[in-house]
Each structure stands twice: as C-alpha cells, then as structure tokens.
Design a protein around this nucleic acid. Structure first.
Length: 494
RNA sequence: GGGCCGUUAGCUCAGCGGUAGAGCUCCGGACUUUUAAUCCGGGAGUCGAGGGUUCGAAUCCCUCACGGCCCUCCA
C-alpha cells in the first residue's frame, strides 16, 4: 500500500494552480541560505552569550515545513533541514497582509525559505521572525501524521523517504551506518591498506560457496555472474605485488531472504601479505572495537537483554572445543564415523540434508548448537578443510584449515583465513569441490583456471578477511533485522 | 518451499453476524509569543482482491496478493 491521498493531492494541486496564477514559481531553481537551522540557533546563542548587544543576528534559512500553528494574525511554523529544525514566526503586520494571506496556499511538507532576525520566544525557543518568506518546493502529497509517526513496515521500507521524515531514530540509524563504514575505511587506510575496486561482473562466480545471479552481456553474447565474493580478484592483487589491499562493496547472492539475509549486501574484504589468520584475528578485534569507539563512543553495546563488550581480546575457541562446550559433542569419537555423526545430528533434532558429508554435518552442528550462543565476541577457529577450499591447511593436521569466523550477538560477522597459496593443493581442492558438486551438492566452489594461473606465478603467505558490514551494523545498532539497516531492502514486487 | 499472525479513513488503531467508528491529519471559522497550540463546526472508506455460506458478511469459510515473525535455505 502506498501512502497516497487523492483528496489531499487534488487540494494541493489547486493551491499549486493558485500560486502560479499569483505569479509565484512553486519550484524556483535556487535559494541561497546563510545558515542551517542548527547554525542559526547557534549564532543566536552566541550573540546572547556575548551580551546581546545591538541588533539581533539576521539569517536566511530554509527547510521543510513540518508543523504549522496558526494564531490568526500570526503563525508559527517549524522548518526542518538536514541539521535539525528551526521555528519561524510569521506576523501579518511584518509581512504585510497580502503576503501573510499567501500562507493559505502552503501545506505541511512544503519547502520554505525565510529571511529574518532571530529572537527567543516566551517559551524560550530560538525563532526567526520572518521579514519575508519564499516557497521553495510545493509538496503535493501529505506527510505521515505526527503523533504516531509511520509504523507500517511495508510503507517504511517501500517509501523509505517517509520513514526518514517521520522517524528520527531511523535517520540517526542510517547516519550511524555511514559513520561505521567511514570508520572502517579510515582504520584500514591508517593501517596501510590500499582501497581497490574489482569487477562485479564475472565469468565465474567464485570465492564463496553460494548461488550467484546470472546476467547476460549482449555484445559478447555470453552469460556473466554477479560476484558472490571479492576474494579471487583481491588475491590476484597480492600476487601483483601490493602488500595490503581492501575493498568495500556490494556482494550478490541468489538465496533466501530473511531477517539476516538480503540478496545484495555490503562486504569488506582485506588481504595482507606476510600475515596469517592469527594476525588477522588481532586486526579484527582492534577494528571492531575501534569502530565502536569512533561511532558509539564505547565498546559496550546493548544487545537484546544483555551487553556485549567488544574490547579486545576476544575469546578464541576452536571448533573442536566449541562443539564440546556448547553441544556436548566430542568430534574425536566421530573422526572417521560419518554415519554415526549423522545419527547424532539427527538425534539432536537438527535437520541436515541427507547428502551432507562429514564436514557439512559439523557445519550444521555449529549453526544450530553453537553459533546462536556466541553472544560475547568470539573467534571460532580451525574449521574442517572440505568447508574451506581456499584456506591453508594446518601444518599439524591437514584435515583442518587455519580459518576463523568472528561471532557477536549470535551473528556471524565474517570469515577469515590464512590464504592457500600452494597452487597444486589449490587445484586439488577445486577438484574435490567439483566431485562434491557431481555428487549432488548444490553450493560448492567453482574451479577458476585464471585464478590458478595467478597462484602458479607465486603468492606470498597472506591473511585474508571478509566482514559483513550489514551484520556489523546490526550488532553495533542492536537491530535484529537486516532490513532495518539497509535503506532499500529487497521486498516482493507489488 | 512450510507454519503462525496481520491487511478497516491519508496516518495510528478499535469494531469480529444486524445502519462503518475514535484520535491525529485534512477542510471551514475564531485567536499577534505558539510548540501534541487551543476552541467551535465539517468531510472523509469498494473494511487488501476474488469467490462462497447466510435473510443479512468488515466479522464465518475458501483461494490469491502483500507484509511480519519462525522454520527451511543461506559461510
């Protein structure tokens, strides 16, 4: 349902026509203000503080009219701009009767410019006493009503501009999101990482196990995939000699939509030569706690009923130990017993796919029995190799890889590992994935010959990281739905 | 893909077999320091769409659409 009111629309169009008849341009091309609403208030406060000598300051301000209090021969209106709002006092004897009567053709939602001197009302509010006013843009649709604001979720998402107008907390939330991304960028650049851009359109969608979107290039007459990760391109740049690169960008995965998943989402990936996953873990806990301090002023984040402390060091827990602690499962007993593990998983009431292999079963166990319990920030470390075809094996146990995932608030925040730089092992791991695909598994890593060619030229030891920006914003803002922190989330088309 | 809940005026909601309601918005009137301005008066609806049951449906039943939550899926 869209917020549209035919009756108001017609009335407002009539006013628009009247304005034009009177020679008023309802959409003038420009208006130069001297002060934002915030600056205007500030200017007056400073003038008062300096002794309020002489004439009060004069300002030219502008904004959307969000309230109108008509007292007969005088009217108060609120003008809201990006910095806040300022009250304007319009008086018949100051403006002249004709100009004052012109207010009748204005509506809530119109943009106005005003020029006038500042004063403080009886109630103490800094206010512009308008010497003149100018219509800057006529609004033909009514705004959401002021008491209850806009609550309807569908309208809030489909007409996000109304959500932003009506709900100040939403405005602040997306400003926070922007600040978080800005802080991440500053952190990475401060550490000597270079920001790069790599292709979104790819001949093969690699770097993760996910279902891609397919599109078609007309001139080349070939299908292309929207990227599901940046990994394979960024590692080529490490091969190319950059020691530290990162990218913040959109990733697309053709999968289910939920409160934790949007088909397009924002990822930050970084790769650092001569680092391993322990170095990356240290960087992640510093990054997240620093970003929290920069944007929220604290590392203590309220989430659900509790508080999450993002200050380093974060708990480090191997997958093996986590399963023992949270699920009461000792993987040692099932090391070579896939049917036994499957039975156990089933008995725990976890719905695993019938074709799930040993590693996948471990993954299911983690998702169901461990991850939701990881409220305080935790690194889950050392994953089974078959789940991680791009990660380097642990030297003392080739069944495991040097990989960790950071968790907080029960949310998976990212993924990191010591990058596999052995081109022979990498080829074998791709082939193993291909075997699993042939055996019926849907989402596996695709073999990428160009990437292998790059690795064959030699890649230094390297630590890589992917952080889900949306999940991080959820954690830092305490929001449990990803749709609340994406401006225009994917919805069904109407 | 499955389950549960929801959809009534522009907004926020009540009504749940017998004449479609409230507050705010909106419209008209009064008011030159209001700020949820106040006071007086007024308009407002295919009750999400379609079908069925009934003398009679916003209300009960079925189908569909959209949304929310939970599963499934998904690093």
């Amino acid at each position: 349902m869209s917020l549209r009111d035919e009756e108001s629309f017609e009335l407002r169009n009539e006013k628009l026509a009247r304005l034009r008849t009177r020679g008023v341009d309802p959409y003038p091309p420009r208006f130069h203000r001297t002060h934002t609403s915030e600056a205007a208030t500030q200017t007056f406060v400073e003038w008062e503080r300096a002794g309020a000598a002489g004439e009060p300051p004069t300002v030219v301000a502008a904004g959307r009219m969000t309230a109108q209090r008509d007292m007969g021969k005088a009217t108060f209106v609120d003008l809201r701009d990006g910095s806040g709002k300022i009250q304007v006092y319009l008086k018949s004897d100051v403006l002249g009767e004709k100009a004052y009567a012109g207010l009748r053709d204005l509506d809530l939602g119109d943009f106005l410019g005003v020029r006038g001197s500042l004063f403080r009302t009886r109630a103490g509010e800094v206010t512009v006493e308008a010497a003149e006013y100018t219509l800057l843009a006529k609004s033909l649709q009514p705004l959401p009503e002021k008491w209850h604001g806009l609550v309807d979720t569908e309208t809030r998402y489909r007409q996000r501009y109304l959500d932003l107008i009506a709900n100040d907390d939403v405005r602040q939330l997306f400003a926070l999101r922007s600040a978080i991304i800005d802080a991440i960028r500053r952190f990475m650049v401060g550490r000597g990482f270079m920001e790069v851009e790599t292709p979104v359109l790819m001949p093969e969608a690699g770097g993760a196990a996910a279902n891609p979107f397919v599109t078609h290039h007309e001139a080349l007459d070939r299908d292309l995939y929207l990227r599901i990760a940046m990994e394979l391109h960024l590692k080529r740049l490490i091969v190319g000699g950059y020691d530290r690169v990162f990218e913040i960008g959109r990733i697309f995965r053709n999968e289910g939509i939920s409160t934790k998943h949007n088909p397009e989402f924002t990822m930050m990936e970084s790769y650092e030569a001569y680092a391993d996953y322990n170095d990356v873990a240290a960087m992640v806990e510093e990054l997240v706690s620093w970003v929290a301090k920069e944007t929220l002023g604290t590392t203590l984040v309220p989430f659900d009923d509790g508080t999450i402390d993002l200050a380093p060091p974060w708990r480090r827990l191997t997958v093996h130990d986590a399963l023992k602690e949270y699920a009461g499962v000792d993987l040692e007993h099932y090391r070579r017993d896939e049917p036994g593990l499957r039975t156990l998983v089933r008995d725990m009431g976890i719905d695993a796919a019938p074709d799930a292999g040993w590693a996948k079963l471990v993954d299911e166990l983690l998702s169901a029995a461990v991850e939701p319990k990881l409220l305080q920030p935790t690194f889950l470390m050392d994953y089974p190799a078959p789940l991680s075809p791009l990660a380097k094996r642990k030297p003392d146990n080739p069944d495991l890889v040097e990989r960790f995932e950071p968790f907080g608030g029960g949310l998976e925040l990212g993924n990191a590992y010591t990058e596999l730089n052995d081109p022979v092992d990498q080829r074998q791991r791709f082939l193993e994935q291909a075997r699993r695909k042939a055996a019926g598994e849907r989402e596996v890593e695709m073999l990428d010959e160009d990437f292998l060619l790059a690795l064959e030229h030699g890649m230094p030891p390297c630590g890589g990281l992917g952080i889900g920006i949306d999940r991080l914003v959820m954690l830092l803002s305490g929001k449990r739905s990803i749709r609340e922190i994406i401006l225009f989330p994917q919805l069904r088309s109407k």
